[in-house]
Structure formats: structure tokens, C-alpha cells
């Protein structure tokens, strides 16, 4: 049995607006093991990005706050750490790659400066050593002209190059956990293929655990070992990637998989999920997916289902698979 790098238990994150608390995450549970790629899948509004920000505790400038639950990283509960200790972890033990590399690179600093700064701070190296280390890291992400690039500014690079630099920055201190939030969504397909391949290689080499947040089921199928499907701030299904695609249980997961057009698949009409994701202020009672679900029963609209074990590595929260009954009281 492998050790868990990260364990998220019953995580609840809220945002405050006009003295009102809006619950974005409503009890999220999952764990990641060493050297594992865990896919976090969901549509916009599912809370997948808020999950990553909660793990990093990067709420500055927003009213976000962890209300409940724990995030244990090698046994340390991150929710209890202060900002200074978090800063020690960020970039060293836990790194993050964002969708839009331009927003996380400082436009007025040279690439070299940005890279060596965090290396110097976290790895306690001299200026010279950290420069050498930075160049080595850039080369490891497939940048041939690393020495030249150290003296360039972010805006001089193409989108794919910038994402490589971001990955180099994230991997420079050999983190144990890499959180990649839609790392290839802004990139062209041929460049996306390069970046995904690179992330796979780096994972193999360093045994890094990767939390891959994406809406693209193709990327999930390509990259992940295990998948967590989120809907409306909760995990609705969790399974091994082969199991999930071969035998999805939750009606939402099924709908998601079937609504993606596949090359070579000559369907005239695509399956789709009717309606829209509910907004956090207007959450329906009972199962949050019930209003869009074609299998919805009466109890789905009244009670929230609990997470059920389907097989040893497959969990799903849906009344279709419930082990115990619940009394209905029509109001």
C-alpha cells in the first residue's frame, strides 16, 4: 500500500458576499498517493478550481475561507498552518501550474530571475548554484536554448514556451505534489500534446503526485490513474480511470462522457445533459444533480445521497446505488 501524499477530508469552502456566506465546496473528499495522477473533473461552477486554491490557501484578494474539514499533507493539516508556514510549502513541497501562464509570470522580471529566486529561497543555494539548477530544470522541460531564455522576458515567449517555463518553475524544487489547473486549456492541440507528454515524463522521473484539474475528458483519459468527478461543490463519483470510462455509474458522469463528440464516432445527435449547473445561491434541495437527471426519483429531490462503495476502488453518490432506504415525507 502506498502512502497518501495528500488527503482532503470533508472540505468546505465559503465565499462571503454582502454579509452572506455562499458555500462553494460542500464537503469534498479525496486523496492522492505518491507518483499518482489524480484527475479532478467537472464543469465550470463545479468547484474544482476552488478546491485547488483551498489546498494552496491562495485566497488573497477574495473573500474565500475554509470553513470546515481538513487537508492533510504528509500528516500536517494545512488548514491549521499560518501564512508564513504555507509560504514555506508553496513552491517547494507543493507547486501549482495555472491555465494562463501569463498571469502567474511577472511581466517585468526576466525568466532567469523569476526561476532562481524561488530556488534560492527554498533550496538554500548560492546565486551561482541556483542559476545552474535553473538552467538544468529548463533543459529538463525540453527547452534547448535555456541559457538564452534566462535573459528573456515572459512576453517574448510563445504560449507553449511560457507553459514550459511555468512547469520548470513548478518542478524546480522537486515538489512532492503538483497541482495543475487546466494546464493545457489555453494551448493549441499540437502544443498540448507536447506539454502532456512532458508532464508524464517528469512524473515518471521524480515520482511526483499530480492533481490534474480539467474539464477535458480526453486529457483525463490520456493522463490520469484515478478520477474524481465533481458537481456543484461535491464529489459525485471516484474511480480508477479504466473503470470510470468503461463503467461510469453516476448519471452525471455518464452524461459527461456521452456528450463529448469523439473522432470516428458517427453519431448524428450527441447526448447532452439538459439544463444548466445550478448557481451556489440557488442550490436545489436533495441531490444537486436531480433537476437535470433523467433517472431522478422522488427521493432524489428531497434527500442528498451519501457516497456509496461500488467496488473497492469505485465510489459513487447516487440514490440508484444506495444501500439503505430513506423515508419519504411528502411536504
Amino acid at each position: 500500500m502506498n502512502e497518501n501524499v495528500l488527503e482532503v477530508i470533508n472540505l468546505e469552502t465559503i465565499f462571503k458576499r454582502d454579509q452572506q456566506e455562499i458555500k462553494i465546496l460542500r464537503g469534498v473528499n479525496f486523496s492522492i498517493q505518491r507518483g499518482e495522477v489524480l484527475g479532478l473533473v467537472g464543469e465550470s461552477g463545479s468547484g474544482k478550481s476552488i478546491t485547488s486554491l483551498s489546498i494552496m490557501k491562495l485566497f488573497h484578494g477574495t473573500s474565500g475561507e475554509i470553513k470546515n474539514g481538513s487537508i492533510s499533507f504528509h500528516g500536517t493539516d494545512l488548514t491549521k498552518l499560518d501564512e508564513a508556514s504555507m509560504r514555506q510549502l508553496r513552491g517547494k513541497k507543493i507547486s501549482m501550474i495555472f491555465q494562463e501562464p501569463m498571469t502567474s509570470l511577472n511581466p517585468v522580471l526576466k525568466i532567469g530571475k523569476q526561476l532562481t529566486e524561488s530556488i534560492e529561497m527554498h533550496m538554500k543555494l548560492t546565486r551561482k548554484q541556483s542559476t545552474a539548477h535553473a538552467i538544468k530544470t529548463l533543459k529538463s522541460v525540453g527547452i534547448g536554448r535555456a541559457e538564452e531564455l534566462m535573459n528573456e522576458y515572459p512576453h517574448q515567449l510563445s504560449g507553449g514556451m511560457r507553459q514550459r517555463v511555468m512547469i520548470a518553475m513548478a518542478m524546480a524544487c522537486e515538489p512532492e505534489l503538483l497541482i495543475a489547473d487546466e494546464p493545457t486549456t489555453a494551448l493549441d492541440v499540437t502544443i498540448q500534446a507536447q506539454i502532456l507528454e512532458l508532464m508524464k515524463q517528469l512524473k515518471e522521473k521524480n515520482d511526483t503526485a499530480i492533481l490534474l484539474i480539467t474539464h477535458d475528458l480526453g486529457v483525463v483519459a490520456e493522463m490520469c490513474d484515478r478520477v474524481v468527478v465533481m458537481y456543484a461543490g461535491q464529489v459525485v463519483e471516484e474511480a480508477d480511470v479504466f473503470e470510470l470510462f468503461a463503467n461510469p455509474k453516476h448519471p452525471y458522469t455518464k452524461g459527461l462522457i456521452n456528450s463529448v463528440p469523439k473522432i470516428g464516432d458517427r453519431k448524428e445527435v450527441l447526448d447532452s445533459i439538459p439544463g444548466n449547473v445550478p448557481s451556489p445561491q440557488n442550490m436545489p434541495q436533495g441531490c444537486k444533480f436531480a433537476p437535470r437527471c433523467s433517472n431522478a426519483m422522488e427521493k432524489c429531490h428531497e434527500h442528498e445521497p451519501e457516497i456509496e462503495t461500488i467496488t473497492e476502488s469505485h465510489f459513487c453518490s447516487c440514490w440508484l446505488y444506495a444501500s439503505k432506504e430513506v423515508a419519504l415525507h411528502a411536504k
Partner: peptide, 23 residues
Amino acid sequence: LIASVPVADPLLRRKKETLKGDI
């Protein structure tokens, strides 16, 4: 281009012959 599209089926997972370099 066609080979680069990730396929939503883990059984078809394969090593990509990716295009080198940028546009």
C-alpha cells in the same frame, strides 16, 4: 493534428508522435 487530440478512452492511450517545436 488528428494524432494530437487526446481521446476520451484510456484504453486507446498511446505515446504520441508529437510535432516538434512551436508554430
